[in-house]
Simulated scan of single mutants.
Amino acid sequence: MTTAPQPKIDGRRSAAAARRRAREQEIIGATRALFDERGVRDAQIEDIAKAVGINRAIVYRHFTGKEELFALTLVGYLEELRGDLNAAAERPGSARERLAIIVSAFVDYALAHPAFVDCAQALMRRSGPELLDEISESALFRLGRGISGCLTVLSTCIEDGVATGEFAVEDPTLLANTLYASGLGALQLARVGILVKEAAPGIPTVGEISTDQVRSYLVDSALALASARQGQPSA
Rank of each mutant, 00 (worst) to 15 (best):
L85G: 09
T173S: 11
E68D: 04
A226R: 03
G93P: 02
E79P: 01
F70S: 04
S104F: 00
Q188W: 09
D10C: 03
R229G: 15
T152P: 02
S136W: 08
S104M: 00
K66F: 11
R61N: 10
T211Y: 01
T156F: 04
Y217N: 10
P201V: 05
A22S: 11
V103W: 00
Q232I: 05
G29W: 06
G128V: 12
R23S: 11
E198R: 01
D47R: 05
L223I: 15
A122K: 08
K50L: 09
L143R: 06
V162K: 03
A100P: 00
A181R: 09
L99M: 09
S182R: 09
Q213C: 03
A71C: 04
I27G: 04
D47A: 14
E198D: 07
R61H: 14
L174R: 02
I101V: 07
E80A: 12
S138N: 04
Y77E: 04
A186H: 14
S227Q: 12
D10K: 08
L179I: 09
P7Y: 06
L189F: 14
Q188L: 14
A105W: 07
G146P: 10
A30F: 03
R12Q: 13
A163V: 00
R229N: 12
Q188E: 15
V75K: 02
L81M: 13
V107I: 13
T3E: 11
A176D: 03
E159W: 00
T31Y: 13
G207S: 12
R20V: 07
R125N: 14
D118E: 15
R142W: 13
F141H: 10
T152I: 05
E37L: 11
R142Q: 15
F141S: 13
R142A: 12
R145N: 15
R61I: 06
Q232W: 14
S136Y: 08
V40A: 09
N55D: 15
P5V: 03
E24A: 12
Y60V: 01
L225E: 14
V206H: 09
P7Q: 10
A122R: 12
E97I: 09
V103G: 00
L131C: 08
S227D: 07
R191W: 13
R142Y: 13
I203D: 10
P129K: 06
R38F: 13
L123A: 05
V59Q: 07
P204W: 03
D220V: 06
V40Y: 14
I135P: 00
L143G: 08
Q188R: 12
F167W: 09
G183N: 12
R82Y: 08
I9W: 15
G53M: 02
G29Y: 07
